[in-house]
Write a protein that binds this DNA or RNA. Structure first.
Length: 409
DNA sequence: AACTCGGGGTC
DNA sequence: GACCCAGAGTT
């Protein structure tokens, strides 16, 4: 590792003086061009931490409103450690990668127990906290505590690969260690936080992934790929695997008073801990299905769920009410149902694509023991605001609203 | 080392 | 569509 760093620096004649000049040029540029961002108006380590977690794989403009609301609602580590889980998830609703916020609360509880309620001013101790990896530990250490550690994200790897014509695959974990080694040598020990953020700003504005403008870069004299006309070759990044497609029926089940049935995804499911209409995965979405064919998956889910709940709560499972004849598709005047008659939602994740068909259903005059579990609720439109839902669920609700609205008008 | 985990912006 | 984004945890 040290050999790779030394050889790379030697190859392009980066001696002590050149490193010194590099730092000065970069930091002078930053002093003139730094982006004015909310988390740059503080040195509160907790606020820096919140911003860094939110910024993982998430664009700056998306994060800003979430960040401001989060630190306003939970202004201390103690508040985060203690807050109710549903309220916590509501603050993250729509931001994605929900394990981030769950891990952050775990870390807050670690900090209360082990670090006297304060983030430790130490890279390795930061790294020991749940949800804080090498990037985030270095970012907090450098920005909040002036510890010289390179916060190596996509921006820093891309810029560094171009500076030194490095053909390392930046999607590989082993490559990241090389970039860390190089950048820990280059980082300015007097302004480590600004050094890291300067490279991030440069990567976000000038040395962008596509259509970069290296001729405008303050580092162009240091940039081997720019000087040699090889900039288009860097960084090297392996292509991602193709997304898989999945098909679901989502049931908008209303009872006679108009409340809708919702369930909270388990920890094992995608979109874990978020509330959704009941969704059943099917092998494909067929046209021209009968009422029975459309309702069968829901019927099976309702009956098995009801009997499971009775069993788990120590009730007799023998008299689960017969509900097949209590289910009714809305509208009800068709023999067969074309699937394009109902709202269809396509939801794209980073690694898969979901095609979700919404089936509006009435469940008449039947008492099911569903609410004996905390993971299922009958909700009114108003109740939904108190539950954390995914962006997929937001889409489903908007589509069903449009659909039912048209039917009435 | 490969896979999983959201959602939105861009080209 | 494909790619990217101030990545980390799990297997």
């Amino acid at each position: 590792m040290k050999d790779i760093v030394r050889d790379t620096l030697n190859k392009y004649h980066w001696d002590k003086q050149k490193i010194h000049d590099f730092r000065k040029v970069l930091l002078d540029w930053y002093d003139e061009n730094r982006r004015d961002l909310p988390w740059r108006q503080t040195k509160n380590p907790y606020f820096i931490w919140v911003s860094e977690i939110m910024l993982q794989q998430t664009q700056v403009q998306t994060v800003i409103p979430y960040y401001l609301r989060f630190i306003d609602t939970l202004p201390t580590i103690e508040a985060l450690a203690k807050v109710d889980k549903e309220a916590l998830y509501l603050l993250w609703q729509g931001l994605g990668y929900y394990s981030r916020v769950n891990n952050m609360q775990t870390a807050a509880q670690q900090i209360m127990a082990n670090f006297d309620g304060q983030l430790p001013a130490d890279y390795d101790q930061l790294l020991s906290l749940k949800g804080i990896g090498s990037y985030t530990a270095a970012a907090i250490a450098s920005i909040a505590f002036d510890i010289p550690k390179a916060a190596v994200d996509g921006n820093l790897m891309r810029i560094t690969a171009r500076l030194f014509e490095l053909d390392l695959d930046i999607s590989q974990a082993s490559s990241k260690k090389v970039f860390e080694g190089l950048l820990n040598t280059l980082i300015d020990p007097h302004r480590p936080g600004d050094f890291n953020q300067a490279l991030m700003d440069l990567g976000a504005t000038i040395m962008t992934p596509s259509n970069p403008t290296p001729e405008l870069s303050p580092l162009k004299a240091f940039d081997a790929s720019y000087q040699n006309g090889t900039a288009h070759l860097y960084p090297v990044k392996k292509k991602k695997v193709k997304q898989s497609h999945h098909y679901f029926l989502a049931y908008y089940v209303q009872d006679d008073s108009g409340r809708a049935l919702m369930r909270q995804h388990s920890q094992q499911e995608l979109l874990s801990r978020l509330w959704h209409f009941p969704m059943i995965e099917v092998s494909q979405l067929n046209e021209g299905l009968t009422k029975d064919e459309l309702l069968q998956p829901l019927y099976e889910w309702l009956t098995t769920t009801a009997s499971n709940i009775l069993e788990e709560t120590g009730h007799s499972a023998s008299n689960t009410p017969a509900i097949k004849d209590k289910l009714e598709i809305r509208p009800t005047d068709n023999e067969r149902y074309l699937f394009d008659q109902f709202p269809m939602v396509k939801h794209v994740f980073s690694h898969r694509v979901w095609h979700v068909q919404i089936i509006p259903v009435r469940l008449h005059q039947v008492a099911l023991p569903l609410e004996l579990t905390d993971q299922i609720k009958w909700v009114t439109a108003k109740d939904v605001d108190q539950l954390a839902v995914s962006s997929l669920q937001e889409k489903l609700m908007q589509h069903i609203l449009d659909y039912m609205g048209e039917g009435e008008g």
